[in-house]
Amino acid sequence: MSREDLAARQAALLAALVADGPAPAGFDPARLALEADALRAKRRRLLLRLIPAEVHEQLGADLVARIDGWIRTHARRTGTSLHDEATAFVDLLRAADLVPPSPRRRRRGRRGRGWRGVRAMRLSWRVTPGSPHPR
């Protein structure tokens, strides 16, 4: 097996776990499902923390179902932070008029271009408000 082969196998496993890819041969399907659930649960938890309070208030119990639906159809791409994801998700809710526009909120994207550089990049990596570990 070459580095390239290993890269392909890791990509296939990850796609199966987060992007509805086919189950790679040899893995226990029950364990793949378990791992996929764990990854989704972690992402849901972190997104819930990053989503503004007014969105929690507006959608109530419906928020979790909407996040779950979104997670299932939006694998996180390399180069996208969780903050970017939370922003994209809330923008979608606003576009669908599920959440009223927030005039106070400054969109990261608008401010982003003039604010690039190492510091912005570092902040965009910030995995969580809490920690990266599984819960």
Partner: peptide
Amino acid sequence: FVRAGGLESGHLLPVP
């Protein structure tokens, strides 16, 4: 590993 094929796992995955 935590990324592969342009995707991020968001959590630590085992290496063979």
